[in-house]
Amino acid sequence: MRRLLTVLCVAVVSLVAAPVARAELIPWFASQVGGATQVISVVGVGGSDAKLDVYERTAAGWQAIAAGVPAKIGSKGMSPDHYDGSLLTPMGIYTLDFAFGTQPNPGGGLQYVQVGPNHWWDGDMKSPTYNLMQVCEKSKCPFSTSLSDGTENLDIPQYAHAVVMGVNKERVPGKGGAFFLHTTDGGATAGCVAIDDAMMVKLIKWLRPGALIAVSK
């Protein structure tokens, strides 16, 4: 009997002391991003507010690099049906093509363009360079530079640091353009995703070609 109790005690101690297997982290977008190893997740939490989480895939699986970063999105929220002037942040999985900003390049793996007064994002739906960055003096630009036509001058505080989201890369007129992840001014956006500038700098330093941004409610 004493031996049996000893064996049972050892078994119980061994069971309690056994390491607990950690559940694999599987983000909501995992089945939609192919072989991407860097993904920025943006999930709406109501109105023009969202939370931003940062993930990296390693040999051990997905790892959370940052979580719960406050973000602002379009003043009308988000939708899969985006279009010019909708004030909606487009839902979906998008490339992060290159970075830009009024401030010097903080470093990182993406191409970086330091912008000034002659840098524009062409929003003129009649222009052959619609939804592309262009460099020209305002009086000599071959497209409308009017904000009412959708064109943005990139020399503004909200673009201290920014990364271009690959929305409407086919450049279909009317399907929207100038969607960026950029520095926040504290308010809702016209359809972009905006976060604190210090976090923007960290992300630009971290990002590499092939990174994606995943946007959902």
Score class of each variant (00 low, 15 high):
L87E: 12
A59Q: 04
M78V: 02
Q114H: 06
W121V: 07
Y94G: 03
A36K: 10
V45I: 15
A99D: 06
D49Q: 14
G46K: 10
W62V: 04
V115K: 11
A67S: 15
A36R: 13
N105A: 00
A64R: 14
S48M: 10
I40G: 11
Y55P: 01
S75K: 14
P70F: 02
Q63P: 05
P90W: 10
Y55C: 05
L87G: 00
P27M: 09
D81W: 00
D81T: 04
W120C: 11
L110Q: 03
S41D: 15
P90T: 02
D49I: 02
V69I: 15
M91F: 00
N105C: 03
P70S: 03
T89H: 02
G108M: 05
Q32F: 08
W121N: 09
M91T: 05
K76Q: 13
G85R: 01
P90M: 06
L25R: 11
R57N: 05
S86N: 08
V115T: 14
A66D: 11
W62G: 08
V69E: 11
E24L: 11
G107Q: 04
Q32L: 13
W121A: 04
V115M: 09
G85M: 00
G34D: 12
I26L: 13
G116E: 12
Y83N: 03
P104L: 10
G116W: 12
L88C: 06
V43K: 15
D84L: 01
G101F: 11
T37K: 11
D97Q: 13
G61R: 13
S48R: 03
F100C: 01
P117K: 08
V45F: 04
P27E: 01
D81A: 11
G109F: 05
T95Q: 14
G68L: 10
Q111Y: 09
A99F: 09
S48A: 10
P70L: 02
A64G: 03
V45Y: 08
A67K: 15
Q32E: 15
Q32N: 09
G92R: 04
S86T: 06
S79C: 08
W120F: 12
Y94C: 04
G68K: 12
Q111D: 14
P117S: 10
S48D: 13
D53P: 08
F100G: 02
P117W: 06
A67L: 14
G44L: 08
A36G: 09
Q114D: 05
W62I: 07
K72S: 05
D84P: 00
A71L: 00
V115Y: 07
W62A: 09
G108E: 05
Q103K: 14
S48T: 10
F98R: 14
N118H: 15
W120L: 08
Q32K: 15
Q114E: 08
T95Y: 10
